[in-house]
Design a protein around this nucleic acid. Structure first.
Length: 192
DNA sequence: CCTCAGATGGACT
DNA sequence: GTCCATCTGAGGC
């Protein structure tokens, strides 16, 4: 599968969020190549109260969001989980796409060890259903944490390739941003 | 199936 | 000191 190039990322976050659906995340770690198809995304932009870089407010945490599109923005949430974002848009224009869900494609066995510390064969139906259908869950399965913050998505450790052709997708309000006032009504969540 | 509380630590004011 | 772009397990139906 062809690796996505710079031009894919240096665009508006809402457009990129829609087009990331069906693409494959590739994560190389400990000699394994893990692949998962993106099934759910959310867009975040500077003029949006839910965004970490709202109003172009730059902090230590969100610095990578101000870079030109094509890097990973990974942060710790609720003290124990990581969230993976794809930085988009131009240099100086903070924007990102949160990857909220993915479906395992390759080396699911190793993902199971990372996610649950046990082999696939030991998983019950509940565990299988909740394998990587959330931002924290997919980061566990793909061995993604803050060490990858700022990492280029055109490199070798973590990148995105062309994937499955998507016929259609659904749209909704973003999750977990009740504090964001009117911005919480934006339909910037996209899923298959 | 559902709801709810607790975990846990860094970022920000 | 307060707030999280979350997940899990327990308990109820």
């Amino acid at each position: 599968m062809t690796k996505l190039k710079k031009g894919f990322y240096t665009r508006d976050a809402v457009t990129a969020a829609q087009e990331l659906l069906g693409k494959y995340i590739v994560r190389k770690t400990n000699g394994h190549t893990l692949v998962a198809m993106i099934t759910e995304t959310e867009a975040y932009k500077a003029d949006d109260k839910a965004c970490h870089a709202y109003n172009y407010n730059k902090t230590q945490r969100n610095t990578v969001m101000f870079k030109e599109g094509g890097s990973a923005y990974v942060y710790l949430i609720y003290g124990m989980y990581n969230c993976l974002n794809v930085v988009t848009d131009a240099e100086g224009e903070p924007a990102a796409v949160l990857i909220r869900g993915a479906e395992p494609i390759e080396d699911k066995e190793y993902m199971s060890l990372m996610r649950y510390k046990k082999p696939l064969s030991a998983l019950n139906a509940y565990e299988k259903r909740n394998f990587s259908n959330g931002p924290g869950k997919l980061c566990l399965a793909l061995d993604i944490d803050r060490k990858l913050n700022g990492e280029s998505l055109m490199g070798d450790k973590l990148y995105i390739t062309e994937g499955k052709e998507i016929r259609s997708f659904k749209t909704g309000k973003r999750i977990g941003i009740d504090y964001a006032e009117e911005a919480k009504e934006l339909l910037w969540r996209f899923y298959l």
